[in-house]
């Protein structure tokens, strides 16, 4: 069952066009949304969550229309733009106390469990946490209202290798619990560790959306490279010397 279906998503900015992006994410799978900086990953994720208004296309989450059923959808999913960057000087317990009021499906036991698992101290403020711990607190809030779909915008950016590995392990654990995850990244090694599917965007257009293994096989066969990084470089590399000479 598809938990997220995106069909022909487009967003027109004066100097950028996100052009007809389509993909779908099945239940209990992890999808990596990749592309170089400025490719349109964040615009895609923000459009899915209706933080920016799409110019065209259709978004269905758990069968509900976005933005038509926005409130209902937001109780079922969690979104984080990486590390928590709001109310930096408020204690985590105060942020959680306010957040839980908005969710009828808030699970306090789950909240305590994730706090313990992530070694988060409720008396601290986001400002006192490392980048990795702040991402974990974001996840804790999302998971405490039993979000079945997590949408994460570059959650591993800025994390040290150990924190990144821990976070990717967390994703794999959550996948085992039936949670679907869509996360954007330009760190290809993250995807090779945990992603089932890949959606690749370049300059606002869709290059591919398919299972990761198939993507690797097809591109290896076409001679585009052996690893995700090599394949990405094949698609994206421009002759910088030529540009500098112009």
């Amino acid at each position: 069952m598809a938990v997220l279906e995106v069909k022909g998503l487009s967003k027109q900015y004066p100097e950028f066009l996100l052009d007809g992006i389509s993909f779908s994410l099945e239940e209990g799978r992890i999808m990596g949304l990749i592309g170089r900086n400025g490719a349109g990953k964040t615009t895609t994720l923000k459009s899915i969550f209706n933080i920016v208004h799409k110019s065209g296309g259709e978004i269905k989450i758990f069968g509900f229309d976005m933005p038509g059923d926005e409130q209902k959808i937001k109780t079922l999913i969690g979104y984080t733009g990486g590390a928590i960057n709001y109310y930096q000087r408020k204690k985590l317990k105060d942020i959680a106390a306010v957040t839980r009021r908005f969710y009828t499906n808030w699970d306090d036991d789950a909240y305590r469990r994730y706090l313990d698992a992530f070694s988060l101290n409720e008396e601290k403020t986001p400002l006192q946490l490392s980048e990795g711990m702040r991402v974990k607190f974001s996840l804790t809030l999302a998971l405490s209202h039993n979000a079945k779909l997590l949408i994460l915008d570059e959650p591993t950016s800025g994390l040290d290798p150990v924190s990144r590995a821990e976070l990717l392990d967390t994703f794999t654990y959550l996948k085992g619990k039936g949670v679907s995850i869509l996360f954007s990244t330009h760190i290809t090694s993250d995807l090779e560790k945990c992603a089932d599917d890949i959606t690749y965007i370049a300059k606002g257009s869709l290059i591919a959306s398919m299972p990761l293994e198939r993507f690797l096989c097809e591109n290896r066969a076409a001679g585009h490279g052996d690893t995700l990084e090599e394949i990405m470089v094949h698609y994206e590399k421009e002759d910088i010397n030529e540009k500098l000479a112009d």
Partner: peptide
């Protein structure tokens, strides 16, 4: 405090 973004992520 990024209050706008926090608020819009809530089901409101």
């Amino acid at each position: 405090s990024n209050d706008v973004l926090y608020s819009l992520l809530l089901p409101v």
